[in-house]
Structures are given as C-alpha cells and as structure tokens.
C-alpha cells in the first residue's frame, strides 16, 4: 500500500484536534502526488460515524483501536507501529502539538526510522517526501530526506490547513497487544483548566504578558494597557505554568492560536512555541529589554527597554488620546 498514516488526536468530548485534521488534509494531498493513499489512526472511544467522518479530510481509511487509551503516547506507539508494519506504510505525519512529538519519537526507536520535527512544509521530490525544517531559532531551513522508509514527520503547529472535501472513510478495527511498559503510565486527570475561563480569541487587540513582567501582580500593567485600548490579555506558557495567569489565556503550541489586529508583547522572548500561536497577527509590537530577544526578529515595531518604565506611561498616553 505504501501510503501515509496520520494520527488523529481527540479530546474527551470526541472533538478532533484542528492540527490533526490539518495533517490529514496534508497527507491526502501528498499521497495524491505520490500516487498512494492516506489513512488515519484513532484510539479510544471513537464512534463509527465520527471515525468515518475523517474521510471528509481526504483519508480513505481509518484504523481504530478501541482498547488503547487516548491521551498518552506509548500505547499509541504500539498501535501505530503495528498498523505501519502490517500495511507497509511509507510515512507517518503528525500535526503540531505535544503528543505527536512523543508518539513520533517512540516510533523512531521502535521502527529504527528517521524523524523530522517542527516541519513547516513537506515536498515531493523524486517520488519521496522531503521535510522542510527550520533550525537554529528559525534562522535556517534544512531540507531533510529519509534514507529509508518508513519516515516520520512531525509538523509544526498550524503548518497544515484542514480542507474539507467530503467523503467518508472505511473504518477498520484493529486489535493490538499493548507493550508491558505502555501500560505503566496512567492518566489520572486530563485537560485540567487552571485559572479563570477568559476569552482571548475574539479580541482585536491583545496584550501578551511574559516572564518579563516579573511577578503575578504585575499583570495589572498588562490589564491596564489592554483596558486603555479595549483589548484583552494573553500569556506565555512560562507565566501560566508559574500560576501568574489562567491557562485559557495562553497562546502557543499547547495553548491558543490567535491573529488579532494588534499583538503587543510585554516581556516575552518570542520562543518558537509562542510564536507559532501569534505570528499571523496583523501588527506585532514588542517591548523587551534584551535587544537579542528572538521576538525582535519577527515584530513590526520593537522597543528595546524596561517595560516597567514604559508601560505605565504608555497606558497614560493612550488614555489621554482616547479621552481627548
């Protein structure tokens, strides 16, 4: 068969992940160019019509393993390794996220297969897939090929768009005996939302706060600035992990993706995992005291300076304008 296999992640309500759907569409497109087909793997309690519905994104077949739990990588490595070997898949593709990294890495070991990660584009060259992978903080792009099949491709968040073209997929249930070690990690609680349920996705103006704010209380600076412009406040993983701001406001690889009219970054370094969630903002303004911060490489206006000095005065000035 020699096709492309994609893992489709879903949440506890059964909604498929947007990045997985993007990977399905991308795999279907590439499979077309290679003259083969794309298929998906789902695990856990996925209903017949939900599984078959993945056909809308271009896959012809869905392998479902009900016994394997969703949410942890290693049981899915067992399932995918078996499906790849039994059906001779040439490539496997993951959308951006976290689990795809872990599953892809596990498959690398299991199948002695090449892996690329943070891939932003995949091209067909001489009947083979070649992955474009930005390296060294996105300052270079490496075109990476595979010495042998199967090849594992882990996409960057939002690299692949989901396209609905219609169609339903054939669903095949597969039985897989899980490895002993795959059952030694158990999910206790999944997807806990820490902090208030704030809405950042509808805002035209977002003020993003990072570790540079210094402490939890200083998020007030970000809130006052956002208020002066009628915007909302977003955050980086660093400050969410630290408990300074709610998870619902987090932008990036394991948070939300936004594209407001203005993204105003306060004390944010601009790490790739943050950038992927906000780089499509119309206008990006960054205030950071480190002139070498990566965010200065992709902002429209960069201000090198101490946010504690600048932000209060900026808020005052904007308020004065808005009032006058």
């Amino acid at each position: 068969m020699a096709g492309i296999l994609v893992y489709a992640l879903h949440d506890d309500e059964g909604n498929f992940n947007k990045n997985s759907l993007g990977a399905l569409s991308e795999a279907a497109k590439l499979a077309g160019e290679l003259g083969t087909e794309a298929a998906a793997v789902v695990v856990g309690d996925v209903a017949d019509d939900a599984a078959a519905g993945l056909g809308a994104y271009g896959v012809k077949k869905v392998y479902r393993c009900k016994e394997a739990p969703e949410g942890l990588a290693q049981p899915i490595v067992d399932v995918m390794a078996k499906v790849i070997q039994d059906n001779d898949f040439s490539y496997t593709l993951f959308g951006g996220g976290l689990l795809g990294f872990e599953i892809g890495a596990g498959l690398t070991a299991r199948l002695n297969a090449g892996v690329t990660m943070e891939v932003t584009q995949v091209n067909v060259q001489d009947g083979k897939l070649v992955a474009e992978r930005p390296i060294l903080q996105d300052s270079q792009i490496a075109n990476v090929g595979y010495v042998e099949e199967p090849g594992i491709i882990i996409g960057r968040l939002n690299a692949f768009d989901a396209n609905e073209s219609g169609g339903t997929a054939e669903v095949e249930d597969v039985q897989v005996e899980l490895s002993e070690w795959s059952t030694k990690a158990k999910m206790v609680t999944r997807g806990e939302q820490r902090g208030a349920d704030v809405n950042i996705e509808d805002a035209n103006i977002l003020v993003g706060g990072g570790r540079g704010l210094g402490k939890k209380e200083n998020f007030e600076l970000a809130e006052q600035l956002a208020d002066s412009m009628g915007g909302a406040v977003a955050a980086t993983r660093a400050v969410v992990d630290a408990g300074w701001y709610p998870y619902a406001a987090q932008i990036g690889q394991t948070g939300k993706t936004v594209a407001p009219n203005l993204y105003l970054a306060l004390g944010i370094s601009g790490a790739i995992q943050h950038k992927v969630g906000m780089q499509n903002s119309e206008n990006i303004l960054a205030i950071n005291k480190d002139q070498n911060a990566p965010i200065f490489e992709f902002c429209d206006l960069g201000v090198v300076g101490d946010l504690h000095k600048i932000v209060p005065k900026l808020t005052e000035a904007i308020k004065a304008k808005q009032g006058g």
Binding site: D138, Q140, I141, A142, V147, G151, V303
Partner: peptide
C-alpha cells in the same frame, strides 16, 4: 535515518523597526 539535503535561508520578512528606549 535522515539526511540533510540542503540548507537555505528562511523567506525574507521585512525587518521591523527597532527603537531603543533612551528617553521614555
């Protein structure tokens, strides 16, 4: 199992304006 076939610069993005905060 992988081989780097080519290294190239990323697509050029128009550089943003950078200002230093000397007088706030």
């Amino acid at each position: 199992r992988t081989a780097v076939l080519e290294l190239k610069p990323p697509p050029q993005k128009e550089a943003g304006e950078i200002i230093e905060d000397e007088d706030t």
